[in-house]
C-alpha cells in the first residue's frame, strides 16, 4: 500500500482552555474520496483548519503525502498543492468573477489556464465574468469556489460543508463536480454535517464526534454508526 496522501496522528487542538480535537487519527488513501461526517460541534471544521494550516495544533502529527507538515502556514500549503475550500462562501464577494479566478493562479497554474478550465466547465461563470461574486446566487458562488479545486490541480482537496445553505438540486450539481475532480485522480476529504450526497461519491467514510474519529469504513457500513452519532447516542 502506498503512502496515504493525508495522515493525521493523535491530533489535539483547543480554543483557549476548551479542547476541540481530542486525539484525531485519520488517514486518506491516495486518490480516494473520504467523507467525514458528524454532528454540529464535533470538531470537523477545526480539523480542516488545523490540516490547512489556519490553526495551530496543540499536539499530534500531520503528514501530507508522507511529509511531516505541522506548523506550515496555510499560504505555503496552498502553493504546494493543498486546496482548501472552507465552510461558507469561499469567494471574494467584492471582486468580479474573473478577478476571483485570477487570484487562484497563486496555487501554481497560470491564470489563463484557470480561466479556460473554469469557463469550459461552468459556462455560467463566463456569462457573469464581470459581475461581482457577492451578487451571484449561492450556487453560482460555490461553482466559482469549486473552480479553484477544478483548475488548480491539487494533490489533496479539503471540502468543508459544501452544501451549507444550498438547495438540494444545486448540491447535487456540485457533487457531480466533486465526482469529476475525483475521477481526475485528486484525493478528496469531504466534510458534511448530514449524510446527504457526500456518501454517494465517497470511497470511504469516517464519523467524528466529540473531537475524535469514532468510526471509519465503507459508506454502507458507516450508516448505522452515523444514526447513533447524530442523535448523540440517545436513540
Amino acid at each position: 500500500m502506498s503512502v496515504p496522501i493525508l495522515d493525521v496522528i493523535d491530533l489535539h487542538a483547543a480554543y483557549g482552555r476548551i479542547e476541540v480535537l481530542r486525539g484525531v487519527d485519520l488517514s486518506v488513501p491516495r486518490g480516494a474520496v473520504m467523507a467525514l461526517l458528524g454532528p454540529n460541534g464535533a470538531g470537523k471544521s477545526t480539523l480542516v483548519k488545523v490540516v490547512s494550516g489556519q490553526k495551530e495544533a496543540t499536539s499530534g502529527d500531520i503528514h501530507l503525502a508522507g511529509v511531516h507538515v505541522q506548523a506550515a502556514r496555510s499560504d505555503d500549503l496552498a502553493r504546494v498543492g493543498l486546496c482548501t475550500i472552507p465552510e461558507g462562501r469561499s469567494v471574494f464577494p467584492n471582486l468580479t468573477v474573473e478577478e476571483n479566478l485570477v487570484l487562484m493562479s497563486y496555487a501554481g497554474v497560470p491564470a489563463g489556464a484557470i480561466l479556460d478550465t473554469a469557463y469550459a466547465y461552468f459556462p455560467r461563470l463566463h456569462e457573469r465574468r464581470h459581475q461581482l461574486a457577492g451578487t451571484m446566487s449561492g450556487g453560482e458562488q460555490q461553482m466559482l469556489a469549486m473552480s479553484r479545486a477544478l483548475a488548480s490541480d491539487p494533490a489533496l482537496l479539503l471540502l468543508d460543508e459544501l452544501s451549507m445553505g444550498l438547495a438540494p438540486l444545486i448540491v447535487d450539481e456540485l457533487y457531480e463536480t466533486v465526482a469529476r475532480i475525483a475521477e481526475s485522480g485528486v484525493s478528496i476529504l469531504c466534510i458534511e454535517q448530514f449524510a446527504r450526497t457526500a456518501l454517494r461519491v465517497a470511497d470511504y467514510a469516517a464519523v467524528m464526534s466529540g473531537g475524535r474519529i469514532v468510526a471509519t469504513g465503507e459508506p454502507g457500513e458507516i450508516l448505522d454508526t452515523m444514526a447513533d452519532v447524530i442523535l448523540g447516542g440517545a436513540a
Binding site: S74, D75, A78, P86, N94, Y106, A107
Partner: peptide
C-alpha cells in the same frame, strides 16, 4: 494586476487569500 487584486481581496478576507496561496 494580480497583486493589486490581492490587495482588494485581503480587504474582504485575508484568511481566504492565504488559502488561495496569496500572502496577505
Amino acid at each position: 494586476t494580480r497583486i493589486g487584486t490581492a490587495m482588494r481581496a485581503s480587504v474582504d478576507n485575508p484568511e481566504l487569500l492565504k488559502l488561495f496561496g496569496g500572502k496577505p
